[in-house]
Design a protein around this nucleic acid. Structure first.
Lengths: 154, 154
DNA sequence: CGATATAAGACTAAAAATATCTCATATATC
DNA sequence: GATATATGAGATATTTTTAGTCTTATATCG
């Protein structure tokens, strides 16, 4: 239950473009190198971002990608859904007919709630804010300074 | 980014056991049939639930599984983490060293937040409450009544 | 003991994720 | 216009994960 690598790469790509601002042309090669993404894989991801109206692709010599919207108008959610499709934590969220029980079942409702929350959190995060907080955080932030308690790996 | 089928099956299994209450012995076969889970697959899932201290397995003739705790003390989170391991929405949540940027990066922080929320929501849901609300919902609940009102058939 | 039921892990099959390759198309520059 | 450069888009290959099955061993009841 985690973000695929394609999704992660998509975020990196937009993040890098956001640094150059809306409309600035950046070559695929530069993005690939700077964000550590295989160039051919990046091409495929870029196609999906383009279809979603997030970036524009310019072919030909000195081609590349550019953001179509201001970073403040691009959310994590938009990028992720452009690449991995709609978020659904459990199958029964996206396709109620797959539910073994009734779609009214309480477990189903918990998943729906979790899904809503997740989408809301990802929608709150736009790339302008992300970039701004990033620079403020070259020294550690209060929020991340003292923990990482709750998450445990087996 | 979704619950695996093993996780889904684990929930069904505990849900069914919860109907019989803590300590009641239910055969694997019955559970498999009633929850629509392949029996051999159920066996594997049960082993994980047993290791996590959620159920106890009784071998031999007339064997089966029983809940070790009261349904009110078993959460969705516990069952899911018993089966699929710790929840981490993005790789960088579970393994900060996998982060291309600094683990202090703002994207990372958004994922951490989302992950915390998700775990909290799944922890709030215990199987006693789930069962109770279920029966109350044989007639439509306020929350779900909005769209169709009648029990739907597939 | 013999019938029945699960244990545990090996094994197979299928699906998804990840990455690469190839040929086609677009553009700048000469 | 020719050529070099850069991306497009789909096909293909590889790897990993998920899902499910099978086999041999072990436990319990009667």
């Amino acid at each position: 239950m985690r973000l695929t690598r394609a999704g992660e790469y998509g975020i990196r790509c937009v993040q890098h473009l956001a640094r150059h601002g809306k409309g600035a042309l950046v070559s695929r090669k530069e993005i690939a190198v700077r964000t550590d993404v295989p160039p051919h894989f990046l091409a495929k991801i870029a196609q999906q971002l383009a279809r979603a109206g997030i970036i524009e692709i310019q072919q030909g010599a000195n081609g590349g990608y550019r953001l179509l919207r201001d970073p403040s108008e691009i959310t994590l959610l938009a990028v992720i859904e452009a690449i991995i499709g709609g978020i659904s934590l459990n199958d029964c969220v996206g396709r109620p007919e797959s539910c073994h029980n009734s779609p009214l079942c309480t477990v189903h409702r918990v998943w729906n709630k979790a899904n809503r929350q997740l989408r809301a959190t990802l929608q709150e995060a736009d790339f302008a804010t992300l970039a701004k907080e990033d620079s403020c955080c070259l020294t550690p932030c209060p929020e991340t300074a003292g923990h990482n308690g709750s998450i445990e790996k087996k």
